[in-house]
Every structure is written in structure tokens, then in C-alpha cells.
Amino acid sequence: MPGDLTGPEAALRSNGISVESLSRGDTLALTYLTAFPGASVNHQEMGRACNTFIELTEEGAWDPVPVEATVVRAPGDVQGRWRLDPDWIRDLGAYRISEEEFSARVLDTLEEPAVGEP
């Protein structure tokens, strides 16, 4: 099963992101099980996921599309949601924005429902 994976899912898993589901289309919808099931989404874990998409793009292994990520503590227990715009990856690669600006943009999209909220 994991040995048969390719592309973004395999890359995410190899970077310690526990992919629960991934669907591709005009948007890549990612749901992952956090290794840090506290009240807030772990920013380092978000960073690992973002870095995976950046690396895939730099390697020519992925043509960036918008990413809609849902972070869960357990199935049905949403810890938060965040987005990644493909233009941010392109801007970072072209040195139009810094790594700090890139991170700030992603963090600005983070939504964390109150505990118990879907």
C-alpha cells in the first residue's frame, strides 16, 4: 500500500505527514492526522507539509494547484484548516517573496474551530 504510492501523497508521508485522504482536481484536498492533537494546529507540521509541496514543485514532480488542508486529531475531530495558494509557491521560487512572507501567508489562512465544533 504505502510502497505503491507516488506523487504528493508519497512525498507527504515520507515527510511525516499522516495522510488520511487526498483528492486531486482543480484543488488538492488534503486531510491529515496530526501527531500533535492539542488545541491548536502545530505550525511545524504545517511547515513540513508546505515544504513538501515546495520541493515537489522545484523538482518538477508537481504542477501546483490550490491546496485545501484539513487537520484532524481523530476521524471527524477537526483541529483546523489551512490553505496554500500555488502563486505563493511560484513567488517563493522566483524570490518575489521571502520564506517568512510565505509562512505568514499560509498562517493567515489557518482556521481553528473551538473544541467540539466540526
Rank of each mutant, 00 (worst) to 15 (best):
T57L: 03
T52F: 05
E117W: 10
V67T: 03
S40M: 08
E68G: 01
R105S: 10
R81S: 06
H43E: 12
R96S: 12
E117S: 14
L12E: 02
Y95H: 10
P118Y: 10
D63H: 10
V67F: 03
D63W: 02
N15Y: 05
T109G: 05
D4E: 14
F53A: 01
T34H: 03
T52V: 07
P37L: 06
E68D: 15
A69W: 00
R83T: 03
I17A: 04
S98A: 07
A114S: 14
F36W: 13
G80Y: 01
M1N: 12
G116F: 03
P8G: 11
P86L: 08
P37Q: 08
D4T: 13
D26E: 14
R24C: 00
G7I: 06
E111R: 14
L12H: 00
A29M: 04
L107Y: 11
I97Q: 12
A61Q: 13
G93F: 02
T109S: 12
A94N: 15
A49F: 04
Y95S: 14
G80M: 04
A94W: 08
S14N: 15
A39S: 09
G16C: 08
G116W: 06
T27A: 11
G76T: 09
D77A: 11
R83D: 04
D91V: 00
I89W: 04
A114T: 12
Y95P: 00
I89N: 05
A104R: 15
V41M: 00
S23P: 00
P113H: 02
Q44V: 08
M1E: 13
G25F: 07
E20G: 06
G38R: 09
A35R: 15
S98C: 09
A10H: 08
L92D: 07
A49I: 02
